[in-house]
Amino acid sequence: MSWIDIGALDDIPQRGARVVKTLHGCVAVFRTHDDQVFAIDDRCPHKGGPLSEGIVHGHSVTCPLHGMVIGLTDGLAKGADEGAVATYPARVEKGRILLDAARLIRGRAA
């Protein structure tokens, strides 16, 4: 693991998200109502909608474009829909958000 400090927990509203730009595209970092953080690809498996702009409820997000619901812990589509997005380890320490960047930054052997 190589944890990178990407910002303060308070930079993300509760039940909201912000994006982090990486060489592999944008990663959406969510903060849920219970102050946990989750990082998943910011591309809906349906038609690429920005999941970071969806409404966050419990540990799920509803895609803003056509309403697919994605689980934040496993990146899997819920209900009758199928599809998945990549998830990345993220955690909060002393009010800062740490993202495991092993798979996200240039040239690093994972």
Partner: peptide
């Protein structure tokens, strides 16, 4: 700032 990305890791170099 809230409308911009929280962080940009594209420039992050390998150790």
């Amino acid at each position: 700032a809230d409308f911009a990305p929280l962080a940009d890791l594209t420039q992050e170099a390998a150790e």
